[in-house]
Design a binder for these strands. Structure first.
Ligand code: MN
Ligand code: MN
Ligand code: ZN
Ligand code: ZN
Lengths: 147, 147
DNA sequence: CAGTTAATGCAACATTGTAGCATTAACTGC
DNA sequence: GCAGTTAATGCTACAATGTTGCATTAACTG
């Protein structure tokens, strides 16, 4: 029986008013420790590695909850699977880069497409999603290496 | 037994070198006659209305073929279903607008995000997808009317 | 520590998209 | 026009992703 979790992740979750469960702590820490966005399967695999597997449905609900609370954000990608990353994006909505070689989705925090474009009359945009496709820095360096 | 179809759609299909089938003609004309993008179900419903229903799988393959040939293009949207619109987009890759009220996806031909942004060193972008979310011109005009 | 209730696990289902293969129909050459 | 060839279609079964309902568990409360 582990002592009550006092990790930063646990504190963030507690601050939202929800219950601080092992699943939420573990998932949020996995997102926080990953440099790139993860889909449900990625998270499930890491949970299993760490010896705490969870049901598929729990994972869907946990990730949705983290997004609702602003502790994670969804990344739009070309495949049908949703991807997630730690941190909200309501304020700083940034662009993303999808690598066609390794399949990773990375955040481009420096690029914020909001208010960069003038829409035709009548349209009332509330947010913009910008996704680049191509070769990421890692894959561009190691040509020919299949990750 | 209808006479050989000499519609513009049939000519476009013939110019691609593929067989000019009823399914391809009907689907392409449906896309051409729609002001907004359509998903597979939308197209299937219109085909059924016109008295020529087709198998689900045929529709998937037909739409994919039209995109391969450059006669249609895929629209990225927030839901899991792909949407299609007549016309290629290899050259003029434009932005799209997703209306949160009526759910329609519209093309913003005037907005082309390519080469508008400078990426961090190492990234080699090949194309960009830009999607706005908000209220479309129609929904902004007719407040409270549910389409 | 016991009681309350949110969170979880499980099973079943829904949606979207694919693969294999037999059948049909569009083209080709006559 | 007609027969032969083969691309396209229809059908079935399946895969991947996500959702719903409900019984059980575990996190909080006092
Ligand atoms: Mn991001
Ligand atoms: Mn378009
Ligand atoms: Zn890469
Ligand atoms: Zn609208």
């Amino acid at each position: 029986m582990p002592t009550p979790d006092t990790s930063p992740a646990a504190h963030l979750i507690a601050a939202c008013g929800g219950r601080v469960t092992r699943a939420r702590i573990a998932v949020l820490e996995i997102l926080q420790n990953s440099p790139r966005s993860l889909n449900h399967d990625d998270v499930a695999a890491r949970l299993a590695e760490d010896g705490m597997p969870h049901d598929r449905v729990t994972l869907y609900r946990t990730l949705d909850w983290l997004v609702e609370q602003g502790l994670a954000h969804r990344v739009i990608g070309p495949d049908r699977a949703r991807r997630f990353k730690a941190g909200g994006e309501t304020r700083s909505h940034h662009a993303h880069f999808h690598c066609d070689r390794c399949g990773h989705v990375l955040c481009l925090e420096s690029i914020r497409p909001e208010e960069q474009f003038t829409l035709p009359a009548g349209y009332q945009p509330e947010r913009a999603e910008l996704v680049f496709h191509g070769t990421c820095a890692d894959c561009g360096r190691q040509r020919g290496t299949k990750i």
